[in-house]
Amino acid sequence: MSDETHTLKAQARERTGSRYCKRIREAGGLPAIVYGHGKDPVSITLDTKEAVGHITKGEKVFELVLDGSDARQHVLVKDLQFDYLGTNIVHADLARIELTDRVDVMVPLRLVGDAPGLKTAGAIMTHPVAELELNCLVTNLPSFIEIDVSKMQAGDVIHAGEVQLPKDTMKLLSDEDGVVAHVVVQAEVPDEGEESEVTDEGATPEVVGEKKDDEDEKDG
């Protein structure tokens, strides 16, 4: 996360619901909600270009200024809703925070370096866990965590518990046994490998609970 906290201008919206949200989006706005810290939730409208621009860069903490009031409130992006293609952000959840709070966030992982193990024939790098959940101070939120894979040989595994967190005050909440990087050597496949996954069984599947001809005769 950059050191600077960006300011987002917002307008409170009185009308809620999908029809009104659709009109807001068509007008270039992003429907959002602010909640938390024992106060009532407030439905707001953000400027899509401004908000999405910052969010896609990895910003999570913003200073929110509501139109018609001088009060400034720090907020954390808690959740995002996407359209069915995942292209556009259609709604954002913002949680009120203080800069001294500790928060739980998901942080993406970034693998850096060239693993020598990948030069082995059939070796690929897999990372089943692509993001880690951390508990940390709002001011210390990382945009990503770098994992050095430059010493990984074939078969080597890095678990979540072995990842060096950027600050000592950060706590890992994800499962420590989660695999964040693994150089897997795939099993040798015969030359006809492109066709090997095809099932050679009969064309009709078995029907669960269907009586076979022999059983029918016995019953009859």
Partner: peptide
């Protein structure tokens, strides 16, 4: 029908 991937067991035929 060529042997492409299909379910092994089904509850109903159609």
């Amino acid at each position: 029908m060529p042997p492409y991937k299909i379910p092994k067991r089904v509850k109903h035929r159609k």
